[in-house]
Computed example of a mutant assay.
Amino acid sequence: MKVPTGCMFTHIIRGDGKKITYQNAGVDCGFVGALNAGFCNWRIDFTYADTNNKTYKTSRGKTHTECEIHPMRDNAPQTLPRYGKACAHLNINGVRRVSQCHHITK
């Protein structure tokens, strides 16, 4: 499955250092992209890796069988145990289609 023209996967993190106060990921579509049938059987996962790129935590999202034009997921505020990176992944029909990561540094 290709991401429709006019759509982009976004990942937003707010906080300071290892403390995440807000985290959200989703697909934003505009113009022609908003006219597509949507994303079906989708799930958004959040993963956290250390500075050696070793994943130490995964927050698996719920699989949504309905089709949505703008799939989106928030994650709970948290304090990470170590620096590294936080990533969001969009899965369609159980297959990872796109990811976006943020480095979490001092």
Rank of each mutant, 00 (worst) to 15 (best):
G33L: 12
H11P: 04
M1T: 07
L90Y: 03
T105R: 12
G33R: 06
R60Y: 10
T10S: 14
S99F: 01
K106G: 04
C40S: 11
H70D: 10
Q78D: 09
A76R: 11
G33M: 12
N53D: 15
I69D: 00
C40I: 08
S99M: 08
P81G: 09
A49P: 01
N36D: 13
T47S: 11
A86I: 10
I92Y: 02
D74N: 15
Y83P: 02
G30D: 07
T63G: 03
H103Y: 05
T105K: 12
R60G: 11
T63M: 14
K85I: 04
L90V: 05
C29Y: 06
G84H: 02
M8D: 14
H64N: 10
R96V: 12
E68I: 02
V3T: 04
T63P: 00
E68S: 13
E66I: 12
P71A: 13
T79R: 12
E66D: 15
L35I: 11
K2R: 13
G15K: 02
S99A: 09
R43I: 11
K18F: 04
I44P: 00
I92G: 02
R43D: 04
N52Y: 13
G84Y: 02
D74R: 12
N52S: 15
G38P: 02
R97D: 05
K57R: 15
G38T: 04
N75L: 06
T51G: 06
K57Q: 15
I20P: 00
H102Q: 11
T79Y: 07
F39R: 00
T47E: 06
W42K: 01
Q100P: 00
T55Y: 09
M72I: 11
H64V: 15
T47D: 08
G94T: 02
C40F: 07
T51M: 15
R97F: 07
K2S: 08
C87P: 00
D16W: 06
P4G: 08
R60I: 14
R97T: 04
G17P: 02
T79S: 12
A25F: 01
S59Q: 11
I12P: 04
K106A: 11
R60D: 09
C29K: 06
Q78L: 07
E66T: 13
P71Q: 11
A25Q: 02
F9H: 09
G6C: 14
N41V: 03
A76M: 10
R43V: 07
K106F: 02
P77F: 06
C101D: 01
C7G: 03
Q100I: 09
Q78C: 05
T5K: 14
G17R: 04
N36G: 11
C101H: 01
R96E: 12
R82W: 03
D45L: 09
A34N: 08
N52R: 15
T10I: 11
Q23C: 03
P77Y: 05
P77M: 14
N91E: 11
G6K: 09
V32H: 07
Q100K: 10
T58C: 11
Q23A: 10
V27A: 03
G94I: 05
K106M: 07
Q23R: 07
T63A: 14
R97Q: 10
N91C: 06
T10D: 14
N52V: 14
N93I: 02
A25L: 09
R82S: 08
C67W: 05
D50M: 12
K62G: 06
K19V: 09
N53S: 12
G61Y: 01
G26F: 00
W42A: 03
